[in-house]
Amino acid sequence: MNGEEFVPLSLVPMLTGIFVAVACALPGNFLVLRRQALIGDAISHVVLPGIVVAFLLTGRATTWPMLLGAAGAAVVAVIAIEAVRRLGRIESGAAMGVIFTAMFAGGVLLLELSDTSNVHLDVEHALYGNLESLIWLDALGWSSLWDAQALATVPVELPRMALTLLFVAGFIAVFWRPLKISTFDEGFARTVGVATAPLGLGLVIVASIAAVAAFDAVGSIIVIAMFICPPAAARMMTNRLERQIAWSVAFATLAAVLGYVLAGYGPLWIGARDSVSAAGMIATISGVILAIAARLGPHRLRGSAAPVG
């Protein structure tokens, strides 16, 4: 595999995959610890109706209306779940189940009822995206990385995901102490003056932003998998949050790279002609990593709060 082939075809999808994986895994650490892991699942389902509505309103399948529509749908879903939970006094898992299935069903039906035949907008795309299509046409090789003219034609998903990753990382860095305290001991966090409720909502919103930005490029499977699997695997490795986050970033990157390579080149190695879904393969690899960590991780058992350094 040389640069002339790798840079135009694989560099951009691979980097996008890594950025998506890390941007989702970072907030995922806190969501898993706070037992809100399924928020990512709910958000990635409700993104579909948001995108369909945005498309119907603007008539175009372009980036910004879609992102706004998806973000709007995520906010509507979070509010609706909370409303059902409070108004109906219903346990949050069930409230989530009611809202995201109904919104997803609405999205599918809207999509089927409206004429979207001339744009690339369908349920399959929403589910598993199209990482492989992020081809950098103007790149000729590694040297293109220093060529401003070629750089201008990089698929827009890459810089967008990079920005999203920076934003997510920034949020976690800025609110590191309050986030850490309120995740482990919400009562104590309140006593020392952390506004836990807005902070919790902020975390969910940041997670939604990561999910919505990621979703367009890679579909919702990777999003759910990356929210949960790398942090869950990292949790088996250590008792310290700092190290857990480092592990989760490493696992997310590993899953993205290995998944993309296996999906793109794996079938060729065993003699098949076509590649398989990169999104699905990345999710699968993250599951394999989790399985290994769950069998062998030093802190895989409950109550394994061994002496910490």
Binding site: V32, L38, A232, S277, A279, G280, T284, A294, R302
Partner: peptide, 23 residues
């Protein structure tokens, strides 16, 4: 058998199985 809470277990099985199914 591990320290994961049920919601994380649900989410990981859901996404990994589905991803593998898509492959």
């Amino acid at each position: 058998r591990t320290r994961l809470a049920e919601d994380a277990a649900i989410g990981s099985v859901l996404s990994v199985f589905f991803g593998f199914g898509i492959v």
